[in-house]
Design a binder for these strands. Structure first.
Length: 595
RNA sequence: GGUCCGAUAGCUCAACUGGAUAGAGCAUCAGCCUUCUAAGCUGAGGGUUCGGGGUUCGAGUCCCUGUCGGAUCACCA
């Protein structure tokens, strides 16, 4: 039983004894910093059964606790709030448990298996800032679920098929002159992206030319030769024309090489990749089956639809009149395939931007209409867009922030600031390089993950490369500081067992405060999983680091003559370093031994 | 136009899901390095939580209403 549960049950007993009645929902919250205590019982709800004023109610419960619950030392009452001070021995015991528990921050397996999808890019252009939020978020949520005892499968669906890649292909055929990543030294995804831009340039020019000749805009958009060429390529691809398929494979191959390099830099990984080119046909089959069973219907032109007007939504097309599939079709196929591949998963999580909320509402509804019971355990992890100080990112206007460029800038900036601070004495070039990477990526990841995923956020480049304050590097620095202490302890041959700590009978406030934050790790883990929110962990890691720094600044460790206290403080430092490391790992951030 | 989401300090974000005098960071100002790493710590100023109603012991949080961002309502993905 953890501390909160223990205290809760003591309060429960107290309330029952004092008022001869039980109450289900005890409101227990952390005590505000300005008052003495760690836990606060909100007593207003108790006045119903106490039939006394809130202050008197609080005093009665407090008196009972002090007399009968061994863990409560004293209390104070402010308005209707009962601030509870626990015995220091309780906190010592908390540290003993955490210090002895090598698994602290990893909850036991709950036997559940889930799938989490993230990333899922199109293969016609390189990854950008929006993808970074997506990848960091999906990866981190996966790790958070693992830490909560789930067996997690990380996957993505690669949109490797469709008109977008055909556009890049068409432009490359027209203007590429045989250029390859090898011949030009350009990273594969960037090279294919370059031809996507080329396509759009040529397309706009052709449309304008046609409009000038008297065409309507709509006709011009349809008839522009380069668009006709791309459409023709898509048709040929669906007919498995060998030349087209070869080109498609080649150019996608370039993109995958580029993506893999970027994923590696980002530090994200996948257990299994799904490709739209493999799943869209299955989706088509499922739709046709649904048509037979009457879940869907066919219009006169031959297109297949689902009618969701009964659910407050619209009618939605699932197969075009010419029999080709749309986005929804392949998502149906992919979902079904995944539950076949992983029959034990209880649900799946889709990490996709909030502009697709309607799409997923429809998708889950369709799957449940098709009779798949697991549809109700599919969850759209919907996150907000990333804005720039200049406004929205628009690929057409060239205002996207490229992922590779951004990572490089962050690392370069980390190097610059580290050198300015003169932190590199006695550090090898190799270690220094690793450190710059660690710090730069930490700044970036932490900046993107500290905000509630559901909310739209602003990416200010100047602020993101800050290394002070509420940032990843600040937390890394705190870890490095603790490590210096632990190294010194080791050099003094101080070995500390959990039993050694019981010699402590009283604590400094800064020690108590740090222990309280340390002790809340597992409840934060649960909250982060429940809310699908790495931001909960980011805030926790920051609170913990900040709390430790206060302790560090106020209480000298090695000047302490009392060996028991010295050992206690080192054990506390060590446990906090572990929790910092573990929580940062959940965000995909490594922490250095020195910085 | 329908539906959904958002608005908190100059700026970027929190607020334990209805609890105390709404908290951090950045920026500004003032302190602290002969001590375990100053990428740190301490302090000050900074708020009508978008406006207006309501619900109750209590509202940034719930309900109604208005204003202003945004997203979505494609045989695009």
């Amino acid at each position: 039983m953890n501390l909160d549960q223990l205290l809760r049950s003591e309060i429960q007993k107290a309330v029952t004894a004092v008022f001869q009645q039980q109450i289900d929902n005890l409101q227990l919250q952390p005590t505000n910093a300005e008052f003495e205590g760690s836990h606060t019982l909100v007593c207003f709800p108790l006045t119903k059964i106490s039939r006394k004023g809130p202050e008197e109610t609080a005093r009665m419960v407090g008196d009972y606790l002090v007399q009968n619950a061994g863990i409560v030392a004293r209390f104070n009452v402010v308005k209707g709030f009962l601030n509870i001070v626990l015995n220091d021995s309780v906190w010592v015991n908390v540290l003993q448990n955490i210090y002895a528990n090598k698994q602290y921050g990893q909850l036991p397996s709950n036997g559940q298996e889930i799938m989490i999808e993230y990333s899922s890019p199109n293969t016609n252009k390189p990854l950008h800032l929006g993808h970074l939020r997506n990848n960091f978020l999906g990866w981190s949520v996966s790790e958070i679920y693992k830490a909560n005892g789930y067996n997690v499968h990380k996957v993505q669906i690669i949109n490797d098929r469709g008109i977008h890649i055909c556009k890049s292909m068409a432009a490359w055929v027209l203007y590429g002159d045989g250029e390859t990543p090898k011949s030009s030294g350009v990273k594969g995804d960037h090279l294919v992206g370059k031809y996507y831009v080329e396509f759009n340039k040529a397309y706009v020019a052709q449309v304008n030319a046609l409009v000038e000749k008297g065409s309507t805009k709509e006709d011009a958009e349809k008839n522009a030769p380069i668009m006709q060429m791309a459409s023709e390529m898509l048709r040929k691809w669906e007919q498995k024309d060998s030349e087209t398929v070869e080109l498609w494979k080649t150019m996608n191959g370039w993109v995958y090489e580029g993506f893999n390099e970027t994923y590696k830099k980002m530090g994200v990984d996948f257990e299994k990749l799904y490709y739209e080119s493999d799943t869209y046909l299955l989706g088509k089959e499922e739709v046709l089956k649904g048509l037979e069973s009457g879940v869907f219907f066919k219009k006169e032109d031959g297109s297949v639809w689902v009618d969701l007007t009964g659910d407050g939504l619209d009618q939605k097309v699932l197969l075009r009149a010419d029999g080709t599939s749309v986005y929804m079709t392949q998502d149906i196929g992919t979902a079904i395939l995944r539950f076949r591949d992983f029959p034990n998963i209880t649900g799946q999580v889709y990490t996709v931007g909030n502009e697709q909320e309607y799409h997923f509402k429809v998708l889950f509804l369709i799957l449940s209409k098709l009779g798949y019971d697991w549809a109700k355990r599919c969850y759209h992890l919907s996150y907000g867009m990333v804005d720039l100080p200049t406004g929205k990112m628009k690929s057409r206007e060239g205002t996207v922030v490229d992922a590779d460029d951004l990572i490089q800038e962050m690392v370069t900036e980390a190097e610059k600031q580290t050198r300015e601070l003169g932190k590199l004495d006695g550090v090898s070039a190799d270690d220094a390089h690793k450190l710059f990477n660690m710090i730069g990526l930490s700044a970036l990841k932490f900046f993107l993950l500290k905000v509630d995923p559901k909310k739209r956020m602003l990416f200010d480049p100047n602020e993101s490369i800050q290394l002070q304050g509420f940032t990843g590097p600040f937390i890394q620095y705190t870890h490095a500081r603790i490590k210096a202490i632990l190294r010194k302890a080791e050099s003094l041959n101080l070995s500390i067992s959990a039993d050694d700590l019981s010699a402590i009978t009283s604590l400094e406030p800064a020690e108590r405060d740090a222990l309280q934050v340390l002790n809340s790790f597992e409840s934060k883990l649960k909250e982060a999983a429940k809310d699908y929110s790495p931001a909960v962990i980011a805030n926790y890691a920051y609170d913990l680091a900040k709390q430790y720094n206060q302790f560090y600044q106020n209480i000298p460790i090695f000047n302490e003559a009392d060996q028991a206290k010295l050992k206690f403080r080192i054990a506390l430092s060590s446990s906090i370093a572990n929790a910092v490391k573990k929580s940062m790992a959940l965000l995909g951030i490594e922490v250095p031994e020195r910085m």
